[in-house]
């Protein structure tokens, strides 16, 4: 008994120390820095200020913030609309290969996301795959301007983040007991009514989890707007990166990143609310 206690203390202690060093302290540092002033010589100056947060909500940065949210929202919505039927068919196919099919969803992600994003660029660019094909086929005479548009960024985000929508949905739908569906039919519900009143509500934790896993990264995946969006389509992830690496304005970057963390906290809260409401979880 005593030995086991020692073992527990040591293992939990190691994890705790790990989390303190690599999660808690950095976060506290970022939090602290966000209230400091910028300094030319040593990046930060130890003086308390709300200026960084005030600056963030100023017109220019806030519009980037808003645009990022809009982009992330559109991405999440598209992922959900594609992902739900996809996950549903996958989980409900009753196929012996369904675990294998779920694996196939992930396999493309064994290739670096950066490389896949460049691949999208090659497909979309002025003399890229689509334009060349359409011109050769005689559908268009002038190449379409697809790269460096919001659409290209959304395409890149959706492509990169779709599995993070599909997998939690797959887990939630796979766990859905067929008897709920049968009970619903048994009580007189049509297929559509069963979907609306039973299947979707019971899989809400999966939906929220999926949205969480798509929405948050799509605010931060700076390389996708970089490669596919060009200079016009800057998002909050790019903003933060630029503050740290280019503008060398650490306090402001820290403030922006804190705001993201707060948004994330709210969304996690929403997830746990939805889980508690129906007493089941997928993450």
């Amino acid at each position: 008994m005593k030995e086991r206690n020692l073992f527990q203390i040591v293992t939990i202690g190691i994890i705790a120390i790990w989390l303190v060093i690599f999660a808690l302290i950095p976060n506290i540092m970022v939090f602290a820095v966000s209230f400091m002033e910028r300094s030319e010589e040593s990046f930060i100056k130890a003086a308390f200020t709300f200026e960084n947060y005030r600056a963030f909500f100023s017109s220019m940065y806030f519009s980037i913030f808003a645009a990022s949210f809009k982009m992330a929202f559109i991405t999440t919505l598209i992922c959900l609309v594609i992902g739900y039927p996809f996950a549903f068919i996958l989980a409900r196919s009753g196929s012996r290969f369904k675990s294998l099919l779920a694996l196939f969803v992930i396999i493309p992600y064994w290739t670096s996301a950066l490389i896949r994003t460049y691949a999208i660029k090659v497909i979309l660019t002025t003399n890229g795959l689509i334009n060349t094909f359409l011109i050769k086929a005689g559908v268009i005479s002038e190449p379409l301007n697809m790269l460096y548009t919001q659409g290209a960024v959304v395409l890149g985000l959706v492509y990169t983040l779709l599995p993070f929508m599909i997998l939690p949905l797959y887990a939630a739908i796979d766990k859905l007991d067929t008897r709920y569906i049968e009970a619903s039919q048994d009580l007189g519900a049509s297929r559509l009514q069963t979907l609306a009143y039973v299947i979707i509500p019971i899989t809400v934790p999966g939906i929220v989890a999926g949205c969480l896993l798509v929405f948050l990264p799509s605010l931060g995946l700076f390389y996708i707007p970089d490669i596919l969006g060009g200079a016009k389509n800057i998002l909050i992830g790019n903003l933060i990166r630029d503050q740290f690496l280019n503008s060398r304005n650490w306090p402001f970057g820290a403030a922006a990143s804190n705001i993201l963390t707060i948004v994330m906290a709210f969304m996690l809260f929403a997830y746990y609310k939805s889980v508690r409401a129906i007493n089941r979880r997928v993450l």
Binding site: Q185, D186, L187, A189, A277, I278
Partner: peptide, 17 residues
């Protein structure tokens, strides 16, 4: 859903939400 019979399921299948 169009039959005049109703089932009480083994695990009840009460809608959890």
């Amino acid at each position: 859903n169009k039959r005049g019979v109703h089932t009480v399921f083994q695990s009840y299948a009460l809608f959890p939400h």
